[in-house]
Design a protein around this nucleic acid. Structure first.
Lengths: 186, 186
DNA sequence: GTGGATTTGTCGTGTATACAACACTTTTAA
DNA sequence: TTAAAAGTGTTGTATACACGACAAATCCAC
C-alpha cells in the first residue's frame, strides 16, 4: 500500500480551478470560456492549469466527474448496498444533475457530458456490485455495470423529455434482476 | 520606482491565514487560539505561517490592520480630501469596528488593539494631510496626524461608553482647525 | 516539584506554483 | 485577403510552500 497523501497545494489549486470553471459555466457558454478566464477567476497562473489538466476538455471532464461524485458519493455511496431504494435515489440525483447542467448553457457538449455521466455511473455501479457479489466473475460484473449505466442514463433522458413526475417504474423493475444477480445465487 | 508586484501566492496565503484568524476569533478567545488551529483552518503548513508572520502577536497586529484598512480604505480613502464629512465617517467606521471587536472576545488585548487602531489612523491621516498640505512642514503634519489619531480614538472610546446616538460634535469642532491648517494659509 | 504531552519556533530539502518568453493557431476587423 | 489581436500550449528558472525533524518552552496531571 503506497498511499502517499496528495500535496495540499495540489488539492487547493484543483479546487480553485474547478470552482472557477463551474462558476464561469453559470455565466457563459462553454465555448466562450477561455483558459485565461478560468485562471484569472481562480487567481492562479495559466501554466499551473496545464500542470493539472491537459486542456479545457480534460478540465470539463474532471470538473464534471468531481461534481457528480460529490453529489453522489456523500449522499449514498457509503451506504454500500445497491438495493432498489439506493438505485432510485441515484436515478433522481443524476436527473437533477442533468437538469441543473442544461440550465447552465453547455450547449454543443451534450454528448461529451453524457459520456462523462455514464462513465461515472459505471464506476459507481461496478464498485457497489463488487462489494456485494464477491463470488461473481469480474467480467460479468463489469458488463452489468455497463448495462446499468447506459440504461439509467437513457431512462433519465427519456424521463426528462416526458416530464413525468415519478421515476420510471418500468426501468427500475427491469433493472432489479441485474442488481440482484449475485444475491439470488447465494 | 522598484515596485515589483507581490507574488500572488503570497497574497493568497496571507489572506487564508488572516481570514482563518478572524474566523477563529469569533469562536475562541485570543489566548486560546494556537498556531496549529490557525494553520489547520487555513489549510496551510505551520512553517508557512512563520514565513509570513513572526508570531501570533504579529499576526494579530497585521490581521487587525488589514481589516481596518479594508473597512476604511475602500470606503473613503480614495476620496482623498480630509474634510469634515470624511472625518465623521472615519470616526463612525472606527467606532463600529471597535464594537464588532468587543463582541469577539479579545479580552486582555484591549491595549494592543487600541495601539493598532491608533497606528492605522495615524498613517491614514498623515497620508491624507500630505496630499492636501504640500506646503506644510513634514514634522508639523506628522504631529497633526498623531494628535488626530489619539484624539479620535479617545473620543470613540468615550462615545461608546456614554452610548450616545450622535458623533460627539464637540470633538469634531475641535479637530477641524487641525484638518484645515494648510488650507487656511493658502 | 516531576514527567509526559502539547505547543512553539527553526531549518534543510523536495515539490508546486509564478512568470516571462516563445512558437503556434484561431479570431477579429478593416 | 490580410494584418493585428487574442488564445493556446510549452519550457526554463526563480520562489513559495509542504514536510519531517528538532530543541526549547509551556502546560498539566499526579
Amino acid at each position: 500500500m503506497t498511499e502517499s497523501k496528495t500535496d495540499p497545494r495540489v488539492l487547493r489549486t484543483r479546487k480553485l480551478i474547478m470552482d472557477s470553471f463551474i462558476e464561469l459555466s453559470g455565466k457563459k457558454e462553454f465555448k466562450d470560456i477561455t483558459i485565461k478566464d478560468i485562471t484569472a477567476e481562480a487567481m492562479i497562473n495559466r501554466a499551473t492549469l496545464y500542470y493539472h489538466f491537459e486542456d479545457i476538455y480534460d478540465l470539463l471532464e474532471k470538473a464534471l466527474s468531481e461534481v457528480l461524485l460529490v453529489n453522489l458519493n456523500y449522499d449514498f455511496y457509503q451506504n454500500d448496498e445497491l438495493n432498489e431504494e439506493v438505485f432510485v435515489r441515484i436515478f433522481e440525483s443524476i436527473t437533477n444533475f442533468q437538469k441543473s447542467l442544461s440550465n447552465r448553457c453547455h450547449r454543443g457538449y451534450e454528448d461529451t457530458i453524457a459520456r462523462i455521466i455514464r462513465d461515472q455511473l459505471e464506476i459507481i455501479f461496478y464498485k457497489m456490485l463488487v462489494k456485494q457479489h464477491t463470488t461473481e466473475k469480474d467480467e460479468a460484473l463489469k458488463l452489468t455495470a455497463v448495462l446499468l449505466s447506459w440504461g439509467m442514463y437513457g431512462a433519465s433522458v427519456e424521463w426528462r423529455r416526458g416530464s413525468q413526475k415519478v421515476p420510471p417504474e418500468e426501468f427500475i423493475k427491469l433493472a432489479i434482476p441485474y442488481i440482484r444477480t449475485g444475491i439470488d445465487k447465494r
